[in-house]
Amino acid sequence: MCGRFAITLPNDAMARLFTAAPANDLPDGPNYNVCPTTRIHVVAGSEGGRRLVGMRWGFVPRWYTSMSDGPLLINARAETIAQKPAFREACRERRCLIPVSGFYEWTRDSSGVRWPWYIKGPDTLALAGVWQNWGRGGESVESCAIVTTAANAAMSPIHHRMPVVVDRADWGLWLGEEGHGAARLMRAPDEGLLRFHPVDRAVNSNRASGPDLIAPVSRDNPEPSQ
């Protein structure tokens, strides 16, 4: 599962990092509380080279008559993505990278209280994604979903699912620039890649914003447990 994340890298730095041509209407940043249905930064391949564009986070299948015609598809499971009607064509033809500075997950204590954690790498993470161009009645939108897989041992105390993180050396393969073989990338990252720390419960609100959301906080129960 990946249902909330942060992106703090400026647009021009993001374009340089991914060697991508930036669109003119990229989302504003930084954003420390990116929520589903938000327009997010996406790196997609094209015949003219990589492009950095804004897409709706919430994949809209072609057969939806409106963007809210069915379930909100923010994640696509790696184990079934090639078989699911919503994702199987995009998995073959429209893979993308979603830059994030880190993402959030939650655990619950014995009282049912949700406690947030911020998970990050040593640098900007490139999450595996798939995208779709949907249109009805003159309305058109590009939308995407994050590919997830079973959590590795380091992540599993917080959540049983995690995003697929694509190593920099594999960006071209995932984007379809280097032939076939992208399926092998849909796995959990090495256990040493990600670090996590508890953050303030303010992030439980999708209206919260600001850098304090990712700042470490002290807790009486600092160790994650589900």
Rank of each mutant, 00 (worst) to 15 (best):
I146S: 13
N11M: 01
L185E: 06
D167L: 07
A126S: 15
M162N: 07
L73K: 00
A86S: 15
Y32N: 05
P36M: 03
Y64P: 01
G48H: 09
A153N: 15
A6M: 07
M55D: 04
R77L: 03
L72V: 04
M14I: 09
H41T: 09
N11Q: 15
G210S: 11
P36E: 08
P122Q: 03
C35L: 08
V113Q: 12
A78K: 03
L194A: 11
G48M: 12
R201F: 06
V166Y: 01
P157V: 04
D69S: 13
R88Q: 14
F87K: 05
L72Q: 11
L72F: 04
V165K: 07
P85N: 04
H159F: 03
A44P: 11
A78R: 05
N75M: 06
V147R: 00
G45D: 14
E93A: 02
R77H: 08
D170A: 14
R114Q: 10
P85C: 03
A169L: 14
L9A: 08
N152F: 04
A20V: 09
S143Y: 03
V141Y: 01
A21G: 07
L125F: 00
A126Y: 06
D190R: 15
D69G: 12
A151D: 13
D12K: 13
P30V: 08
A6V: 05
F196W: 10
W171H: 09
G49V: 05
G172S: 13
M14W: 00
Q132L: 01
P211T: 00
Y118T: 05
V100D: 03
G45W: 00
V100R: 13
D170I: 04
P163V: 02
N133W: 09
S68F: 02
S111A: 14
V164H: 09
R108M: 15
A153H: 12
R184D: 11
L127A: 02
L173E: 10
P222Q: 02
I74E: 09
